[in-house]
Design a protein around this nucleic acid. Sequence first.
DNA 1: GCCTCGATTGACT
DNA 2: GTCAATCGAGGCA
Length: 166
Amino acid sequence: MHEERCGRIVEVEAYIGADDRASHARVGRKGRAAIMYGPAGFAYVFQVYGMHFCFNVVTERDDFPGAVLVRAIEPADPTERGSGPALVCRALRITRVCDGMDLVTSNLLIADAPEVADTDVRVGPRVGVDYAGEWAGRPWRFWVANSQHVSRPRVTGTTLDPAMLG
DNA sequence: GCCTCGATTGACT
DNA sequence: GTCAATCGAGGCA
């Protein structure tokens, strides 16, 4: 029997395509992000700075690398912090053993949450990927306006353009 | 084999 | 504002 932990996702970033210089998929399908080249619905968990983990959800079709980094959650347990990708993993007890997990059938799940209005979604450039040149400027970070659990609350983004959602 | 650096955080000046 | 912690993946020889 395991202890159940959960939270509401309030901030994410997109990493799409092998050409994205900020994405680990750039090293190819044999690299550490090989899971990103597979079908959607699986976890990609990696370690950074030798001590922190980041949790991604593979999103795109099989054979095309794409994933969404969960940067912040609103933890169900108010004593936990979820305001940062490494803090999300700490709060949810996500480690490298979760890498490759099936998010539909395993005990690592993503469920529906109350819908957030488009007007409450903020958009801005991704964090911590300045090395990626022009790719760093892509407005592929999305967060819930006024959430107390966003990793960088002082950054103001633009409102979501519904047209870009397709 | 060796070297560099990272999708970060928290402590400190 | 600056900086250390800490280690594996990736780049290069």
